[in-house]
Design a protein around this nucleic acid. Structure first.
Length: 215
DNA sequence: GCGACAG
DNA sequence: ATCTTGTCGC
C-alpha cells in the first residue's frame, strides 16, 4: 500500500499510478451483504471518524457495524478527498467480522477529474466492488433530470459517460452515481436503486451516517 | 486569467 | 464536513 503522509502533488501522482488497475466491468458473485461507508469529524476536524454499516442486501437489515477514529492528516482538497478520509475508513474495515460483498461510498467513483474518486480508491485498496454515491457534482455535465423518482440521465465528461444522475425521490435533488471499482455503470445504477426506500439516500448510506453522528 | 470545486 | 429552529410542502 502507498504512503498517506503525502503532499497534494504526490497524491495526484498516486492517483495516476493506481488508475490503470481500476476495473469497470462487473466482477462479483452473489451479493449477500452491502456496506455503507461514511465519515465525520470531531474536535475541530482534528479527528476523522469513519463508520461502516453492513446490511443484508435482500432485507436491508443491519448485519454488523464498525466505527474508528483516526487523527486527521490531510486537508479537504476537491479531487483528493480519499487521502483525507480513507485512512480512518480502512481502520474501521479491519474491525469488521466479515468483509461485505459491495461498498457504497459517500462521494464519487470514476466521476472524478482523474477517474479516481474515493469509491474507486477504496474499492481498489480493499479489492471489493465499490460504488460512489455523491450528493453533489464534482465534474461532468448532464441534462436536467425529470422530477419523478427513478428518473436518470447520463453524467458525461470529455465525451464519455462517467456515471448517472439519479432522482431517488420525487422533487428532491438527484444523486450522482458512478462506479468505483469492479462494477459497471449500469450495475451501479441498479444496485443503488435496490438500496433506496423512501428517502433520498440509500439505506446503506443513511445507516452509516447515523453511526457517524451518534457520537 | 477566471470560475468550479465530492466531503 | 460543520454550525443550527422552525417551517414549507408533498
Amino acid at each position: 500500500m502507498h504512503a498517506w503522509n503525502v503532499s497534494p502533488k504526490e497524491a495526484v501522482k498516486i492517483q495516476h499510478a493506481l488508475q490503470d488497475h481500476v476495473k469497470l466491468k462487473d466482477d462479483f458473485g452473489e451479493i449477500k451483504t452491502i456496506a455503507g461507508v461514511d465519515v465525520g469529524f470531531e474536535k475541530n476536524n482534528t479527528i476523522t471518524r469513519a463508520a461502516i454499516a453492513v446490511l443484508d442486501f435482500q432485507t436491508l437489515e443491519m448485519v454488523e457495524t464498525a466505527i474508528a477514529r483516526h487523527p486527521t492528516t490531510f486537508p479537504y482538497v476537491p479531487g483528493l478527498l480519499s487521502f483525507r478520509e480513507i485512512p480512518a475508513v480502512l481502520e474501521a474495515m479491519l474491525k469488521l467480522d466479515a468483509m461485505p460483498d459491495l461498498l457504497l461510498c459517500d462521494g464519487q467513483g470514476i466521476a472524478h477529474p482523474r477517474r479516481f474518486g474515493i469509491a474507486t480508491h477504496l474499492g481498489l485498496l480493499v479489492d471489493i466492488p465499490a460504488i460512489g454515491v455523491a450528493k453533489s457534482r464534482l465534474t461532468g455535465t448532464h441534462d436536467e433530470v425529470p422530477l419523478e423518482k427513478g428518473s436518470h440521465v447520463p453524467l458525461m465528461d470529455k465525451g464519455e459517460q462517467i456515471g448517472v444522475v439519479l432522482r431517488t425521490r420525487t422533487n428532491v435533488k438527484p444523486l450522482y452515481i458512478s462506479p468505483g471499482h469492479r462494477v459497471s455503470i449500469k450495475s451501479s445504477h441498479e444496485l443503488v436503486m435496490k438500496c433506496v426506500t423512501r428517502y433520498r439516500l440509500p439505506e446503506t448510506t443513511r445507516r452509516a451516517h447515523k453511526l457517524a453522528s451518534a457520537v
